[in-house]
């Protein structure tokens, strides 16, 4: 078996609230192997986003260990985490999170700016990714000129531009209608077939059905973890 791209051991996260420490994640163990396509499900407040933010190196755990591509991330400093976010993974948000003043091409190229790639290479790579998500002709448009589904495609292109090993997406179709959602999921499926590991959060069983494996959260714990074929519908 190949080494896992992600391995979390006893991962916990507590938030400080006015009412004291609130444990949102209570000791989660999970392994994700290269090339997997995982849907994370669970009711609101079950800790899915908390978990994704930890996987995405956007937040640091209160307890446990997180190995990303073999390195323990749990104790890394902010700059090391930034480099991981930049090179190793791509994050896709529910709200797209494009920078409104920049052209789509510049948005897609932005991660490359932070990895110190020269202008010509940035331009070419961004163009390639936009073409890949089918939006090459809008390269010079601003984000507010295109639809939500198209914006999410641009966000995916941005996540892909640094050729990461895995893509993390927290409810990427949460703001989209069902038809557009299907298109986005088809894109994720295509990327996964190309060998990229995909982990996404969704509330919708239809969406989750695109994934090969489904992990269910409840109250800060993983309560089920199985392959999609086995889902009794």
């Amino acid at each position: 078996m190949t080494d896992p791209v992600i391995r979390v051991v006893g991962l916990g996260k507590s938030y400080e609230t006015a009412a004291g420490l609130f444990p949102a994640l209570k000791g989660v163990d999970l392994e994700i192997r290269p090339g997997e396509f995982i849907a994370i499900m669970g009711p609101s407040g079950s800790g899915k986003s908390t978990f994704m933010n930890l996987l995405g190196c956007l937040d640091t755990p209160s307890s446990g260990d997180y190995f990303l591509a073999g390195q323990n991330v749990a104790h890394m400093d902010k700059d090391a985490l930034a480099i991981l976010r930049n090179r190793t993974l791509g994050f896709v948000f529910q709200g797209f999170n494009l920078l409104p003043r920049m052209s789509l091409q510049d948005n897609v190229a932005l991660p490359l700016v932070y990895s110190g790639v020269d202008k010509e290479t940035r331009r070419a790579a961004a163009r390639e990714m936009l073409d890949k998500v089918g939006l090459g002709k809008y390269a010079d448009s601003l984000p507010n000129r295109i639809s939500g589904g198209q914006q999410q495609r641009v966000a995916i292109a941005r996540a892909l531009v640094n050729k990461p090993q895995l893509i993390l997406a927290d409810e990427p179709t949460g703001n989209l209608d069902s038809h557009t959602s299907e298109e986005i999921m088809a894109l994720f499926g295509e990327l996964n077939r190309e060998g990229i590991t995909v982990v996404l959060v969704t509330h919708e069983p239809d969406i989750a059905a695109h994934a090969k494996r489904q992990v269910r959260f409840l109250d800060g714990h993983i309560v089920s973890d199985h392959l999609t074929e086995a889902v009794p519908e």
Partner: peptide, 16 residues
């Protein structure tokens, strides 16, 4: 602030 968050999420370091 949000823009800063986005930049950080895609790999901007503090010094950037």
């Amino acid at each position: 602030t949000r823009e800063i968050g986005i930049r950080m999420a895609i790999g901007a370091r503090q010094r950037d």
